[in-house]
Simulated assay, not measured.
Amino acid sequence: MIELGGTQTQAPAGDLIKDVTEENFMTDVVDASNEVPVIVDFWATWCGPCKTLGPMLEKAVIAAKGAVKMVKIDVDQNQRLTQALSQQGLPLQSIPTVVAFVQGRPIDMFQGAVPGSEIDAFIKRAIEAAGGDASGGLDDAVAAAEEMLEQGAAEDAAETFAAILQEDPNHAGAYGGLVRSYLALGQVDQAEAALNGAPAEISATPELEAAHAQIELAKQAANAGPVADLLAAVEATPDDHQARFDLAQALHASGDAQGAVDQLLDLFRRDREWNDGAAKAQLFTIFEALDAKDPIALNGRRKLSSMIFA
C-alpha cells in the first residue's frame, strides 16, 4: 500500500501542485489523470474555509510523494470553465469543492473544510481507484486473463477472473475483466449479474464504471438497426436527429466506435439539447466503455469539451 507521510524524499511541491485555468484544464487535469490521480481544489480568494483547506490539501498531496497531483482553480477567474463543469454534473455552487479525477473522470469529491484525517482518506481512495493499492501477484494473474480474453479464450478468461475474485473480492480490475469476458461470450445477463455483485466500496472505480457502460452499449447493440439504411436516412435528411442518433448506435454495434463518436459529435454540434442532451450522454457512455488512453476517447473528449466551452 502507498502510505502517506514517512521519511522518504518528497517530490518538489512545484512538480505536484499548480494553478490551472480553462486553457490548460484538459491537459493538466483530464489528460494528466490518466497517469496519476489529480486532486482539483475549486476555491476563491473571498472564501474563508478555502484558506484553511488549501494548505492542508497541499501538505497531504506533498506527503503522498508523487502518488497524486493537485491543481487549484479559482472559480472567479474561470467562470466559464466552472459553469461548463457544473453543466456536466459537478456541484460547484458551493466552495471549497474538491474533486478527484482518475483516468479522465471525476470519481470522488467533498465540499467544505474537513479534518486532516478525511483528506488523507480521500487521497488514499483516489490512489486505490487508480490501482495504487493492488497486489502484484494478482495483477500478474489479471494480466494473464486479459491476454486470454484478447486471444479469444473468453471462457478461460472468465474462469481466471472469477478465481482472482475469490482471492480478492474487491479487485476492480478482475470485475471489469469478468464483465468483458461474459460480454465477449454474448452473455449480457451474466455480465450484469457479475457487475451487480461487486462490493459497493469499489462501485465508483474506473473499471466498474467502464463495465457499466460496456453493458449498456451491449444492450443497445441488440436493438441496433441496419447501418446502410440509417446512413441513407441521415444523408437524405441531415437534420433528422433521431436517425443520426440511431446511426451512431448502429455504427458502435458494428464495431465502428470512431464513426459513432463522429456522428454524436455532429449531433451535439447541431442541437446539444436534443432529447435532454442524449448525444452528450451517449458520448460519455462510449468514452467510459473505452480504455482511458484510447485515442478515440481522448480525442472525442477534447472535441466535446471544445464545443461545450465555445
Rank of each mutant, 00 (worst) to 15 (best):
T7R: 13
S135E: 13
A193F: 02
A198C: 06
Q282P: 02
L283H: 00
A121M: 03
L195W: 02
L267C: 02
L231I: 09
T7D: 14
K18Q: 08
Q242R: 15
G89S: 03
V71N: 07
D266G: 07
I296W: 07
I202N: 13
N78D: 12
N299T: 10
Q10P: 06
E23L: 09
A210Y: 05
G255F: 04
A130I: 05
G5W: 00
Q187V: 05
A174W: 05
A184F: 06
L298E: 14
D74G: 05
A289S: 15
N299Q: 14
G14C: 01
D294G: 02
L178T: 06
A194P: 00
E201K: 10
D276I: 07
A84M: 12
A67P: 00
I127G: 01
Q151C: 12
A11V: 14
E273F: 12
A191Y: 05
A281M: 14
I17N: 04
L283C: 00
K51D: 10
G197D: 11
P238W: 09
D19E: 08
I39V: 15
A297F: 04
E209G: 08
L185H: 10
V20S: 05
K51E: 10
E288A: 14
I73H: 02
G116L: 08
L247N: 04
Q103M: 12
I127P: 01
D291K: 12
A260C: 06
L85R: 03
G136Y: 10
V99R: 06
A67T: 00
T160H: 11
L208D: 09
V98A: 12
P169N: 06
Q8D: 13
V38S: 06
G259M: 07
A162F: 04
R269A: 14
A297R: 10
A100R: 04
Q87W: 08
L264Y: 01
T237C: 05
E3G: 09
E209D: 13
G48I: 09
C50K: 09
M1T: 14
D271T: 04
M307K: 13
G116H: 08
D276K: 14
A100T: 08
I123K: 08
A281Q: 15
E128T: 15
A184L: 00
T237K: 11
L251M: 12
V30N: 02
A84C: 05
G54D: 01
M109K: 14
Q79R: 15
H252M: 08
I308F: 02
D15Y: 03
C47W: 04
S86E: 01
L265Y: 02
